[in-house]
Design a binder for these strands. Structure first.
Lengths: 193, 193
DNA sequence: AAGGATCTACCATCTGGTAGGTAGGCAGGG
DNA sequence: CCCTGCCTACCTACCAGATGGTAGATCCTT
C-alpha cells in the first residue's frame, strides 16, 4: 500500500519535473528532496532513470487514453469532440506544463529506446483517435474537410503540440486559446468554441 | 582570425548539439572532444554556458532574419513567400535537427533570463514578419483569410514548430511536408506547393 | 520469519567553472 | 633593430558539487 503510494508520488513529481524542465533537466535528487525521501528509495521503485521515464510515459498514455475514451463515448458531434480534445491540451498548459510526450519529443535523441517507442506510440494513438473522429464527423456532415483524415489528424496533433511549446515561452494561455480557436475554425469549418 | 574561427566552430558544434539533444543534453566536454580542443578554450570564448547559449541564439536569429529579408525582397506573391518561409523549416528538419529556438522553448524554464528573452524575441520577430506578409498578401488578394493577421501568424509559427517537433520523433521529413502542405492549403487558400 | 520498503553510506563519472601558466603576435620606446 | 610589455588564444591541472547508480543494514508489516 505504502509502496504503491510512494511510487505514485514519485511519478507525480517526476511527471511535473519532466513537463516543466525536460527529461535532462531534473535529477533523482530533485525528486527525493521534494518528497523528503532518499534517492535510494527512488532507485528501489525505478532502478534506472529510463525505467522511471518509461513508467511515466505508460501512466500518462493510460490517463490520456482514458480521457479520449470518455470524449469518444460522449454522444456529441465530431466538432465538439475535437474541441474537447483541444481542451485536454489547454488544461495541461494551464498548469504551466508542456505535454509530457511533447517535451520528450524534444529530448528524443537522448532517450533510451523503450522511451522513444513510448513517445512515438503516444502520437500514433492520438492521431489514430483523431482520424477516427474526423472520418465519422465527415460522414455525419458535422465537419467538412478535404483530403485524408489522417493527414489532418497529424496536423492537429502537430499544431496543438507546437502551440503549447511556443505559448509556454510567452507565458500566456490566452495566446494558446486564440490560436487553437483559429486552428479549429479554419480546419473544420466548425463553430467557434 | 584564429580567434573568430575557433569561436565560430564552437558555435557550429554547439548549435547542432542543442538542436539535436537540447540545451541540457550536451556539455562543454562534448564540444571540446569533437573539436579536439580543451574545455578551457571554450570557457575562454564563452565564459559560462549561458553566454554560449545567448551567442547561439543571437547568431541563429541573425541568420534567420537574413533569410527572411531575402524572401521579403523577392518580388513574388505572398503565398509563395509563406511557402518559402515554410521551406526554411524543412531545411532544418532535413538536417535531422529541431529549430534552435523551438528546442530552447522546450528547455525554457531551465534557461537564464538572457536566453529566455532571446527565444521569446525570436518568435516575436517571426510572427511580426509573417503578420506583415499576410496583411500585404490579403490586401493584394494573393491570399484569403478571416480575422487578425497576427493570430494567423502565431498559428503558423506554432504549427510549423510543432510539426518539426513531432516529425522528428517519427523520423520522417515526408510527414512534415504533407502536414505543412495541408496547413498552408487550408489556411491560405493557396495553391499546393 | 519473511518480504518489501526505506535508509545510510558509498562510488565513479561527469558537470560547469577556475587558477595559473605558456606561446605567439604586435605595439611602442630606446 | 631589439627589447619590453601587453594581449589573445590556448593549454594543464584542478575543484566542488551534481549525477546516476550500488551495497548493505534496518525497519515495518504480514
Amino acid at each position: 500500500m505504502a509502496s504503491t503510494d510512494t511510487a505514485a508520488r514519485i511519478l507525480d513529481v517526476a511527471e511535473r519535473l519532466v513537463q516543466v524542465h525536460g527529461f535532462n533537466g531534473f535529477s533523482y535528487a530533485d525528486i527525493a528532496g521534494e518528497l523528503s525521501i532518499r534517492k535510494a528509495s527512488i532507485h528501489h521503485h525505478f532502478p534506472a532513470k529510463a525505467d522511471l521515464g518509461a513508467a511515466l510515459i505508460a501512466r500518462y498514455k493510460k490517463t490520456f487514453c482514458g480521457a479520449l475514451d470518455e470524449i469518444y463515448q460522449s454522444r456529441v458531434s465530431a466538432d465538439l469532440k475535437i474541441q474537447a480534445y483541444a481542451r485536454l491540451y489547454t488544461n495541461v498548459l494551464r498548469k504551466q506544463r508542456m505535454c509530457l510526450c511533447g517535451m520528450l519529443a524534444a529530448d528524443f535523441q537522448t532517450l533510451a529506446k523503450e522511451m522513444r517507442d513510448g513517445v512515438t506510440d503516444f502520437f500514433s494513438v492520438n492521431e489514430a483517435w483523431l482520424t477516427k473522429v474526423l472520418e465519422e464527423g465527415r460522414k455525419a456532415k458535422a465537419i467538412h474537410f478535404d483530403g485524408r483524415a489522417s493527414t489532418l489528424a497529424e496536423l492537429l496533433v502537430s499544431s496543438l503540440e507546437g502551440a503549447m511549446l511556443v505559448a509556454r515561452s510567452h507565458g500566456k494561455v490566452s495566446r494558446f486559446e486564440s490560436v487553437v480557436k483559429k486552428l479549429l475554425n479554419s480546419l473544420l469549418n466548425a463553430a467557434s468554441a
